[in-house]
Design a protein around this nucleic acid. Structure first.
Lengths: 190, 190
DNA sequence: AAATGACTAAATGGACAAAACGGTCAATCG
DNA sequence: CGATTGACCGTTTTGTCCATTTAGTCATTT
């Protein structure tokens, strides 16, 4: 076909969601930006929520790819997890779409956006979990509940990057790596 | 004096804040509950916010006492930190006031309540920090940034208790203690 | 067969009046 | 006379319209 209408719509919606947020984006706006009739959107997507969902699904793939690229198979497990998590959080910070949607969850709490952000978190946790499972099998780390560990790793990461800055000076990338290793790898025991 | 008017007011306000939240509580309501005129409140408290602030300040003292009681000087540092944090989180869960106010922050985001909850968090972190500082001095744990460690310990605790339950079965007290020790004390290295 | 935009029911937001609110202070009370 | 009070004030919040906008449909067009 001359033009991929579905891709046009996705591009237009991504742009508008990034710029104005989910709630403030109207389907007519998306249609205009995509140069299609409003009805056409509904031949590809069940509804507005489904449109956002598909966009986030491909964003998840993008994030996974970015994380995968940040890792180096020759390096130890822990450095790689740090690299992956750091890359993921950088990705979040740099991508207009995630920034805008996180802002929308904070400020308005749009249910559809909340749902989709949970999905993103779950995907990241599942990804880290895979890495942990492999590391356990390889004997690189102590045996542990991979799901809880992945969950906590993400929490600690976001706490160090997002929450810490609310009341203190931001931590450098190196400091974060150091802290991450201290708490998760070495532990506080002497 | 026959009746402690200030205490009456504090009791009435605590009850009303616990039952209806900060925003939904009117000063007239507090006055009625306390059996005083509305003006009397303002002879003891600068304004509504100040009233909440005093209540939280004494709550902080209560929490510290509860934590102190939960600890046992004969036990190792780590067990005590776990006991203290667990006691604090139980305290939060059981106290209607904190439950209601946390709910209000989530649902409405009342600025005054947000502020006072931050203060509560800061107090808990400062308390844990003291314990960490002592443990470092005594050589019970590795040298580390006590402020960041206290911050992370609280984060991890709340994550395990509050956030984990949102998508999984709640963890038992024993499991939490075990996890806490695993990540913070031992680390994942073999 | 694919694409469209006029159409509809439902949701939203702005304008405005009424009610409720936090905080003050002159009058009252003990 | 100092402690206490509730009527009072300016402001904010709430409720209620109604006009506009919106997501989603579907008969019509391409």
């Amino acid at each position: 076909m001359a033009v991929d209408r579905k891709q046009q719509i996705i591009d237009a919606a991504t742009k508008s969601f990034s710029l104005f947020g989910y709630k403030a984006t109207t389907m007519e706006q998306v249609a205009k930006l995509a140069n299609v009739g409003k009805g056409t959107i509904y031949t590809f997507f069940k509804n507005k929520e489904d449109l956002l969902d598909e966009i986030i699904s491909s964003l998840i793939l993008e994030i996974k790819e970015a994380a995968e690229q940040a890792m180096d198979p020759d390096r130890p497990f822990f450095e790689n997890v740090h690299r992956a998590l750091y890359r993921i959080s950088e990705f979040r910070k740099q991508h207009q779409l995630t920034v805008k949607l996180l802002q929308e969850v904070r400020d308005i709490g749009t249910p559809a956006v909340q749902e989709v952000m949970k999905k993103l978190d779950r995907a990241i946790i599942a990804y880290i979990r895979e890495k942990i499972d492999i590391a356990i099998k390889k004997g690189e780390i102590r045996n542990c509940d991979a799901e809880i560990t992945a969950f906590l790793m993400l929490k600690v990461y976001l706490a160090l990057i997002v929450d810490w800055e609310k009341e203190h000076e931001p931590l450098t990338k190196e400091k974060i790596a150091e802290l991450f290793e201290l708490y998760f790898l070495k532990g506080l025991s002497k």
